[in-house]
Amino acid sequence: MPSPSIVSTIRSEWIKFRSVRSTPIGYVVTAVLTIGLGILITVAIRSHWHTMDPLARIAFDPVATSLAGVLFAQFAIGVIGILYFSNEYATGSIRPTLAATPRRSRVVVAKVVVLTGATLVVAEIVAIVTFLIGQRIYAGVVPTASLGTPAVLRSVLLGGLYLTLLALLGLGLGLLIRHQSAAISVYTTLLLILPIIVIFLPSSWQTTISRYEPSSLGRAMMSVAPPDQMFGAWTAALVLTLYVVGVLGAATMLLEKRDA
């Protein structure tokens, strides 16, 4: 019997991914949060533009502000990734899955390919749509940006990539922790609570540490010109990718070793 190729595993995981309701629901929530909050934020900025501090107006980034909804949607997108693996443990279907594909790292690779592909498409569309709506709202009152500018295009596309990397971070946490609620707690802690804890550290530590926080990396990725205390956009993308590779790598090693 010829051995099935990795493509068969990917196709199998794709069937599993699209055949549960949590997937479309997760993407719809992501889109609604990103676009909806993007509209709210840009409308608010437009209406307060003339009363804004002149310095703030000079430093104003029409791209990052229009994409601010991403920083809320990151919770929905992470849950898609978390559920994709932890659901298998919650329902017990991990056993049939690993019985069908005993080379366990293949299952991880297949899920990564499916999740990356689907999320990248959805997240890039959502980022571009949000950006365009935001610029339309700004038009005539607030300075606007155009996708024709390389730095602007980069920021918008990295916004989509940021969401995709967070979905993958969720996937890794879901596999590492196995329990849905615990994995969601850890994910939320990393994105939301950690930055709050950092605020209580001495200020010299703060500037060093805070640039490594996932949300700071996201803001850096979506800024046309990231502030000095943050990483550059591409460096931030690289650092976040390393986090994802680290978590997924550790989770895959444990998957190979642990009892299913």
Partner: peptide, 28 residues
């Protein structure tokens, strides 16, 4: 090898056909 270890070890939201299709696809 075919094994039935736990009949309820299926994602409750997935249809029977999709469950079998996913398993079948993984082994060509």
């Amino acid at each position: 090898v075919g094994a039935l270890l736990d009949a309820k070890a299926i994602h409750p939201g997935r249809t029977a056909r999709n469950h079998l299709r996913a398993l079948a696809t993984s082994n060509d």
